[in-house]
Simulated scan of single mutants.
Amino acid sequence: MSTQEKNEIEKTSTPLLYTRYFDIDKIDNKFQPLGVITHNETFSLKNKIAPTVFITNRSFINITDHEITFLANQTHQLIIKKSKDYKLNTNEEIQIDCDWTAGTRDDYFKFLNELKTISGKNITSTLRLHQVKDKDIMGIPPVSAVFLMCYSTSSPLEYSTKNSILDVTTLKNYLSKLEEYPIKEIHVALPIYSWGIVTNHLGKHKLINGLSKKDLQNPNFRLISENEIEITKEGYYFGNLLNRGFKIKVEEISNEQINEVVKFLDGKINDFPIIYYQLDEPFLKGRNFNLY
């Protein structure tokens, strides 16, 4: 962690860092942890850490009760092991991130209850926009608090003139009846990240994380709009070999967009804590988090 990243955490009213420990997927009919957290010896942080685990929706398709118990136990044990190995100062919470569907909701909810019983921790769950809008179909997770993900309003891999990270009009549509959601402790996750969407001659897309409009200033780029360019000379750009004719569209979130979302949510729910995704020095520049 950089000095600026540490300073931003220490300045917050509730200095808590939600930290992705690992992902879980079901591959060849076996549960597997992926991208397990590693530790840099220079890392030090006095603030509390909330372990966060992402689980793919397909992990809960055709899952048995025995497998749910097994998965909950293994998830808990791996969190304990990594926290102990790296001497991480964790709080009394485990956050589970899953884009559950109507078909997997019951088993996902069983998993949350099982994990709570096994760990003795406070289990929280992420909540996507469509899971709010379609709450009667998607169900209500058995948790004390949900973390509303106010981003990913559309897919970046489909052509659209909208900002796929956050389109405020789309968000307002999804959350038009947020005040009716039965879980009243709602934390709000807001995006401060950015990326570039690369499109090739066949119309296929890929993402380059961390790009901003200033990265589009290159003599080998032809400006199409304020946030999109066409490459005029083949070369290595941002660690990728990109051909002439490829296009890059940058998507980033302004302070004005964040403030508009906060103002909208103020009229829907009361006293919501805010989480910013994600903690990375380039994304912190030009932000005044006390404004939101």
Rank of each mutant, 00 (worst) to 15 (best):
K6H: 14
E10H: 14
E10W: 10
K11C: 14
T12D: 02
Y18P: 05
T19Y: 05
Y21V: 09
K26V: 08
D28E: 15
K30S: 14
L34E: 15
E41L: 13
T42E: 13
I49P: 01
P51Q: 09
I55P: 06
T56W: 06
T56K: 11
N57I: 03
F60D: 01
N62F: 10
I63Y: 02
I68D: 05
L71E: 01
Q74E: 11
Q77C: 12
L78T: 08
N89Y: 15
E92C: 03
Q95K: 06
T101I: 08
A102V: 02
D106P: 03
E114H: 06
T117D: 15
N122L: 06
H130P: 07
V132H: 04
V132Q: 05
I140F: 03
P142A: 15
V143R: 00
S144W: 12
S155G: 10
I165T: 04
D167S: 04
S176R: 09
L178I: 01
P182I: 08
P182G: 08
K184E: 07
E185K: 12
L190W: 03
I197M: 10
I197Y: 00
V198R: 04
G203Q: 04
K204L: 13
H205E: 10
K206E: 15
I208L: 09
G210D: 09
S212R: 01
K213G: 15
L216D: 15
E226Q: 06
N227Y: 06
F238R: 14
L241N: 13
I248L: 00
I253T: 05
I253L: 02
Q257L: 03
Q257E: 12
V262A: 13
K263N: 11
F272A: 12
I274R: 00
D280Y: 11
L284C: 05
F289H: 13
N290Y: 12
